[in-house]
Design a protein around this nucleic acid. Sequence first.
DNA 1: CCAATAAATTAGTATTGACTAATGCATTAG
DNA 2: CTAATGCATTAGTCAATACTAATTTATTGG
Lengths: 111, 111
Amino acid sequence: MIEAAPNPVTTVIRALADPTRRAVFERVFESTEISVAELTRGSGVTQGAISQHLKSLKQAGLVAERAEGRNVYYRAAPQGLEPLVSWMDHYGVFWRERFQNLRDLLKEIDP
Amino acid sequence: MIEAAPNPVTTVIRALADPTRRAVFERVFESTEISVAELTRGSGVTQGAISQHLKSLKQAGLVAERAEGRNVYYRAAPQGLEPLVSWMDHYGVFWRERFQNLRDLLKEIDP
DNA sequence: CCAATAAATTAGTATTGACTAATGCATTAG
DNA sequence: CTAATGCATTAGTCAATACTAATTTATTGG
């Protein structure tokens, strides 16, 4: 028992901490669905590396996959960001900084 | 020149990725001001380690310091979280998830 | 059936990074 | 002045991790 399962915030932040892996997440997010081969193209790293990054992202709950034939299509799971959102929210960043903007925005929408 | 200065998002996320360092940030945030010695107490690591973590946090713009005599007092700089907020915001997490709650909240405040 | 393609996994390597112990450098107390 | 305290920095260690190259397992096109 040297395990001590890291909390969800740590898992999510660490998954996003590596620039290459974060770029993978961003590309997945921007597409509805994207295959590993396509993610590999233009990534600058090997297919194996991409698969490893996808595994981390999946474990962090940030992506989900769908296998079809010999392809595997990945899609973003933004709910996976929730632990990070909550953590930041707890530190009060959002409301205090964005409250006024949002208030204005809502006035326009629903005056 | 193997440098290639990492972008602010990377700097901030990486600063928060380590649980010990994040705990330091949290303690700094919770106090108005706190000295290195006090941060060291109950941290489970040495004073040197704390100083190193504070250096990372400072470089990330997450804390600021004030020297007084032989003490150095640290305080949180939540604006340092902005790159991360923007990054997440760009991926649409906040409005979509919190819009309804906030709308209700604003209705109560300003009906 | 067979060659080719997609993706995951594995073993090995090099780098980074968190830590300690020790030292250095001010500043304050006696 | 001298000892003690607070903090930063340094050098060295060990573990984690990002990567490649190679292999493995499926699946599909000719």
